[in-house]
Amino acid sequence: MNIYNSGFLNLEYDPSTDILSVNFPPVSDILMPEISSSFGVIVEHVRNYDIKKLLFDAKDTQVDVDEEEFSPVIAQFARSLSSTRVQKIARVVSSSHYREHVVRKVFKDKELPILFQSFTELDSAIAWLKL
């Protein structure tokens, strides 16, 4: 069921698997405040629906961001998620090796109580979340 759609961010929730799918459209030009705001919307819906599993599909996202700007935003997002009941996050990777490196670095932090795994295929990511 669709629980949020802004034209930029789409959230689909499947109550039978407790998976929230987060999809960003294939845009190439976005500002850091829009990314930060979208992360806030995700955290809000995770709390409101008491979601435990997140699926990020970033394979079509073409945004190139500066590490000095992106790293603190993604780190804050991870800290916000760690204050929810999220247990697992699966990410279908984008073509940006740089962005994926930053995301993996933040979510592999030993302090975060969330399991994180990157995938190249959507089916593999969903299968892992269902385990």
Results as ranks from 00 to 15, higher is better:
Ser95Asp: 10
Leu112Phe: 05
Ser94Val: 02
Val92Phe: 06
Ser95Glu: 09
Leu115Thr: 01
Asp109Met: 10
Phe119Glu: 06
Arg104Asn: 11
His97Ile: 06
Ser96Asp: 15
Leu112Pro: 00
Gln117Gly: 00
Ser118Gln: 13
Arg99Val: 08
His101Leu: 12
Arg99Gly: 06
Leu115Gly: 06
Ser95Met: 06
Lys108Glu: 05
Glu100Ser: 12
Lys108Ser: 14
Val102Asp: 04
Phe119Ile: 04
Arg104Tyr: 04
Phe119Thr: 02
Asp109Cys: 07
Ser118Arg: 05
Asp109Phe: 05
Ser94Ile: 01
Arg99Lys: 11
Ser94Cys: 09
Leu115Val: 01
Ser118Ile: 02
Phe119Tyr: 05
Val93Cys: 09
Phe116Lys: 06
Val92Asp: 07
Val93Gln: 14
Val102Pro: 05
Glu100Phe: 03
Phe119Met: 08
Val103Asp: 04
Leu112Gly: 04
Arg99Trp: 00
His97Ser: 10
Glu100Trp: 02
Val103Ile: 15
Phe107Ile: 10
Val106Cys: 01
Ser118His: 01
Ser94Leu: 07
Thr120Gly: 08
Tyr98Ile: 09
Pro113Asp: 14
His101Cys: 04
Asp109Arg: 14
Gln117Tyr: 02
Val92Asn: 09
Ile114Ser: 01
Ser118Asn: 10
Tyr98Leu: 15
Glu121Arg: 15
Leu122Arg: 15
Phe116Cys: 05
Arg99Met: 15
Val93Lys: 15
Pro113Ala: 14
Phe107Asp: 01
Val93Gly: 06
Asp109Ile: 08
Leu115Cys: 00
Leu115Ser: 11
Val92Met: 13
Glu100Val: 02
Ser118Cys: 11
Lys105Gln: 13
Gln117Arg: 15
Lys110Gln: 09
